[in-house]
Design a binder for these strands. Structure first.
Lengths: 231, 231
DNA sequence: CCGTTGCACATTGTATACAATCTACAATCT
DNA sequence: AGATTGTAGATTGTATACAATGTGCAACGG
């Protein structure tokens, strides 16, 4: 397994950031599995850099909650437990509601238009006959849609927070979207949120956002239990 | 200014973490002022360590939002603008409400007792005649009180988040508590929150928590504007 | 006098060297 | 045989060396 990771060289980003992004991606996609040790020399060799940028990247992953440090033993990929996921989702539920509320107040005409388009794009993909569906594409449309809302809040701190919380869910997003029976419901939920924002009905929008998270929560927790049983 | 910082040596903590805590404290107390550059060699000399632990500490401060990185120029203490503080408080308002809501559901009898005691302790300090008041002590009582509520949520992710958001406000907490005329109001707000939690009245408790933040917001924003004028 | 160029210095970015500690396994003792 | 300790190798923690880049100032030319 010589070439597990590929460094996407970016002339203008410090190596530590390139490494950070690379490792983060690897963790989120499951390439690096929970509990797996991150050993500096090995990573350095594989990525073709020295230990220094690796270490600095790990420091950032540590604060981001993607790895856990064990003194004198180094970093390992953080375990996902049902409890930790519950914690994340609990926070995410409140924070998403806030996003939608603020978006209601602050969204611009241009953003609103893009939001509508994003809704349509998601719906179009979700409503395709099963054989044509591309779950990866669907996930992207979903992210794009949520991103417009989050950006519309204009709150940098909030944007950063949501991104961090989302990370923890990415590893399960696929499983959740693979359940085709839920797709119609998702489209409908998005529609409600969109319509509420258009009409500036904060309350309705918030409730819809919370419901949206609640449904994802069910799917994710189910998935975690399944994986646990397999062991 | 040879001895600006003092490393509190802890036999069992890696140097990077000691440095991290030291720098963080220095930023929060205003010892390191917004816009001030953090130069690695100087810090290394002052703290008596090499650049490596300094750099790793800075990587963590970066993600924590306490310093801003400028490529090839290094780190500087993050500026506090009215906008950034507004962003923090907006998030904090929602998150604090969540804390109180969860605390309502989950607080144990023992924690509830400690919460009552903490309320009393704060009230006792706040109601002293002006000449005897110790603002630093008052601030500590305030933190202790809030900490009990946050811990009672049992949500690790939430606890970490609130701590991070609180950080940004610490630099202004003093100014806010120096306004003695507000002390009675604070005591009353705490009492409402405490009573609501006792009675498991989530709604009331949430509203009180939000009001509590709103009041702090006014004080902090006022302070920021004052400082801006001075320039 | 003003602008431009080039050089020296300061600082960050990266790599490597060395020290401290942990882990696992084997030799020894009971 | 089982426990204990010693030792070698692996790995992290820390320091330092070297490279790349930015910054400011001075010398030079227009």
């Amino acid at each position: 397994m010589q070439e597990r990771f590929q460094l996407k060289m970016d002339q203008f980003l410090p190596l530590r950031d390139v490494v950070f992004n690379t490792l983060r991606q690897a963790i989120l996609t499951g390439e690096l599995k929970p509990g797996e040790r991150l050993m500096e020399i090995h990573l350095a060799d594989q990525l073709g850099v020295s230990r220094t940028p690796i270490r600095e990247a790990i420091r950032k992953l540590e604060l981001e909650g993607l790895v856990t440090m064990i003194p004198r033993r180094g970093a390992e990929v953080a375990q996902i437990t049902e409890k930790s996921m519950n914690d994340v989702l609990e926070v995410r539920r409140a924070v998403d509601a806030l996003c939608v509320e603020l978006a209601c107040e602050r969204i611009t005409a241009e953003e609103l238009e893009r939001l509508g388009a994003a809704c349509d794009a998601f719906a179009k993909e979700a409503m395709k006959p099963e054989k044509e569906k591309d779950v990866k594409l669907l996930a992207e449309k979903d992210v794009a849609l949520h991103d417009i809302i989050v950006q519309a809040t204009g709150n940098q701190r909030l944007i950063q927070l949501v991104n961090n919380l989302s990370e923890q869910m990415y590893r399960y997003r696929f499983e959740y979207l693979k359940d085709f029976s839920q797709h119609a419901k998702l489209v409908e939920e998005h529609r409600v949120i969109y319509e509420s924002i258009v009409k500036k009905e904060c309350e309705t929008a918030c409730e819809a956002a919370k419901l949206h998270i609640d449904n994802q929560k069910k799917a994710i927790i189910r998935q975690i239990r399944l994986e646990k049983e397999k062991k």
